[in-house]
Simulated assay, not measured.
Amino acid sequence: MADDQYLQSLSPEERIRVQMRREIIDDLDEEFELSLEEEAAGGALDEEERAFRRTYFRELVRLQGELVRLQDWVKASGHRLVVLFEGRDAAGKGGAIKRIAQRLNPRICRVAALPAPNDRERTQWYFQRYIAHLPAAGEIVLFDRSWYNRAGVERVMGFCTDQQYEEFFRSVPEFERMLVRSGIQVVKYWFSITDDEQEARFRARIEDPLKQWKLSPMDLESRRRWEHYTRAKEVMLERSSIPEAPWWVVQGVDKKRARLNCISHLLSQVPYEDVQHPEIVLPERVHHPDYERQPTPENMIVPEIY
Rank of each mutant, 00 (worst) to 15 (best):
A232H: 01
Y306S: 13
L179C: 01
E30M: 12
F191R: 08
R17K: 15
S182A: 12
P295L: 07
L134T: 08
T230H: 13
D72E: 15
S171H: 10
Q71Y: 02
N118L: 05
D208C: 02
Y56L: 01
V250R: 02
G65V: 07
E37L: 15
R155Y: 03
R122M: 09
T161S: 14
R225V: 04
H79C: 04
I305P: 02
A44L: 14
W147V: 06
E292I: 12
G94L: 04
C262D: 04
L36G: 11
M300A: 12
E298V: 11
R201G: 02
R21Y: 13
Q5S: 14
M218H: 07
V302K: 14
V153L: 00
V281T: 13
V302S: 10
Q19E: 14
S182V: 07
I242H: 00
V153A: 06
M178W: 11
E176T: 00
E38L: 08
M236C: 08
E273M: 11
E139H: 06
E167N: 12
I24V: 14
V286G: 05
V153F: 04
L7E: 09
G252V: 01
A136I: 03
Q124E: 15
T161G: 10
T194R: 08
S35I: 12
P303Q: 06
G183L: 05
L34D: 12
R99Q: 12
V302T: 15
Q124M: 15
K256P: 02
Q164F: 07
R80T: 00
P106M: 04
V111E: 07
S146V: 00
S240I: 00
Q164D: 11
V68P: 06
E273R: 15
V253P: 00
